[in-house]
């Protein structure tokens, strides 16, 4: 259930080479987007340990966004391929524990794609608003 005043709280892991720089680019281009997410800077999307995601969701994060370089562009060659595999597995696990897998989103955003960063934020916030608050809040799904 959503009420009007509820605003989803989102954490975004962004790799410093592409997506963090893409978020910076949204800033320098003054592209406006909803203020729901907080970015954590990591070296590579490959650094994002599934435990970070689970911890965030267990602490009632309404959504987790992982943003990295496009395939082939990862500063560490193949880090993002591993990310993509891990996220796929984790989504399956989320289903099992009663969390909508859509709460975890993976996007490839390059250093030049400020626009895409902003649009991803808009789309993700809207999607999470439709899903409503994290089901683990108030003691988990019924």
């Amino acid at each position: 259930m959503t009420n009007k005043s509820w605003e989803p709280k989102i954490v975004c892991f962004a790799c410093r080479w592409c997506s963090y720089a893409g978020a910076d680019m949204a800033g320098t281009s003054r592209i406006q987007y909803p203020p729901n997410a907080r970015v954590i800077r990591v070296n590579c999307s490959g650094r994002v340990d599934p435990n970070f995601i689970l911890r965030a969701l267990k602490l009632n994060a309404d959504g987790v966004l992982i943003a990295g370089c496009h395939f082939g562009d990862c500063h560490y060659v193949s880090g993002n391929y591993q990310t993509s595999r891990r996220v796929a597995l984790l989504k399956e696990y989320l289903k099992e524990i009663g969390i909508e897998p859509e709460r975890l989103r993976l996007e490839w955003i390059s250093a030049a794609e400020g626009q895409k960063f902003a649009e991803t934020m808009k789309a993700f916030v809207n999607e999470i608003k439709l899903l409503g608050p994290n089901p683990l809040a108030n003691g988990g799904p019924e």
Binding site: C44, G46, R47
Partner: peptide
Amino acid sequence: GCGTCAAACPNEAIAPQHF
């Protein structure tokens, strides 16, 4: 220092410094 190993390690036994 990409940290891919850290995300993979089941025992949290390896991690890049500063991350």
